[in-house]
Amino acid sequence: MDYLQLMGFGPNGWGYGMLAATGMTVAVALCGYLIGSVLGSLGAAAAFSRFMPLRAIAGFYTTVLRGIPDLLVIYLFYFGSSSVISAVGALFGAEGFVGAPAFLTGAMAIGVVSGAYQMQVFRGAVLALPKGEIEAARAYGMPSFLLFRRIILPQAARFAIPGMGNVWQLVLKESALISVIGLVEIMRQSQIGAGSTRQPFSFYLTAGALYLLITFVSGRGFRLAERRAMRGVRRAA
């Protein structure tokens, strides 16, 4: 069977399978990314807190999660939640190991890791804010929430876009690791295909091409967003 037939949409083709798996990769990455955004903004808020223990927790979170392998975090989440589920199952008479839902645990693991990176991005964006402009807003009588909504948020968002783009690329590539806990995304689907056709090179090469396509397209998207957001900023001559 030649390559085009193998990856085609014919009766023996793996096209639909790979396409569905691509959708799964994007879905799990997106969920993880959003969870990470929530954790990252909470972490950044904690890092700027006046309350020392909150700052310490935020610092610990971002240092630890950026210092250990993502794969280890995925194992922790999968086996951790599985053992909780198994323990609960045992109470109701179920026996043995019950696996946790791979999508949920995978998205959570990616979320917790990317949150540590997004926290750094948000922190940097807030630190980059021009102090004088915030002072001007205060001098014009803006209460804190209005100031945050009208001046800080739009500017910080602008400074955060490039970093957020980098974290998204990271998350997309990280999502491949979820294949180890059985979620059928691009990588797992390729393993299945490689196993049953004995054509591993064709499948993994296709997987690589699919990732490249997603990272390329979303990279373009982020660059467009950056250009739109950077209106009003003097470009280097």
Binding site: E133, E135, A136, A139, Y140, G141
Partner: peptide, 16 residues
């Protein structure tokens, strides 16, 4: 503050 408007040395116009 809204009654006493300030003009700054470094302008501080909102850049966005």
């Amino acid at each position: 503050r809204a009654k006493a408007a300030m003009v700054f040395q470094s302008f501080n116009l909102w850049s966005h």
